[in-house]
Amino acid sequence: MYEIVEGFLEAARLIVTLDADVMAIALRSITISLTATVLAGLVAVPLGAAIYFGTFPGRKSLINLIQTLYSLPTVVVGLLIFLFISRVGPFGFMRLLFTPTAMVIAQTVLVLPIMTGLTISALSGVDPVIRDTLRSLGATHLQFLANVMKEARFAILAAVAVGFGRAISEVGAAILVGGNIMASSFASSTRVLTTAISLETSMGNISESIALGILLLLIALAVNLVITTVQHR
């Protein structure tokens, strides 16, 4: 019991004094996951729109597949990317293993299905009367697509935010392809909040773990706040 209280006090000190190591880890987490989120969003939003507005054979099955991949295990994604970029893999020559780039790739792949799927849901959520209204007002096909997307913008933003949440909170892929390295330079280190918590806890550094855990929660909270503020505007 004492250890836990002690841990929280120490955690508070680490955060309040902006402990350099802790801040570096938090910043790296945000950088990597945000990059992955932006990349995934650039693919997922247009892809989701194409699937939603498109008519092609196997569309329903594709949507089902995408929804199944929501719960894609992070270690499986890690393993997959590992196989591709390890020395013996097809992209081994690029020497990406245990780099932040590898983590970005893994997290992008990881959140693509959920972002695409939620984009499709966001567009399906647009009131059919709104769609009819756009047509009845004489929208061309393109004007129609653009305005349905516009109407779903907040739900699409939420889809992207959910993707970010999944990226920053995952540990399996980060540890497999990142390796939890604490190197001398910021850019070549791969230690992020989740992998650090895992390591510190296993080494008995409870207070560090708690501090990192609180930061992770604060980031999630901040993202949530931004989303709700935008949505209520």
């Binding site: 009131d127 009367v129 709104i130 009819d132 209204t133 009845s136 007002l137 004489g138 516009k150 109407e151």
Partner: peptide
């Protein structure tokens, strides 16, 4: 279609 305007039963606004 652009000759016509339509109002629907359910009030819906953008």
């Amino acid at each position: 279609r652009r000759m016509m305007g339509m109002v629907f039963q359910k009030p819906a606004v953008f």
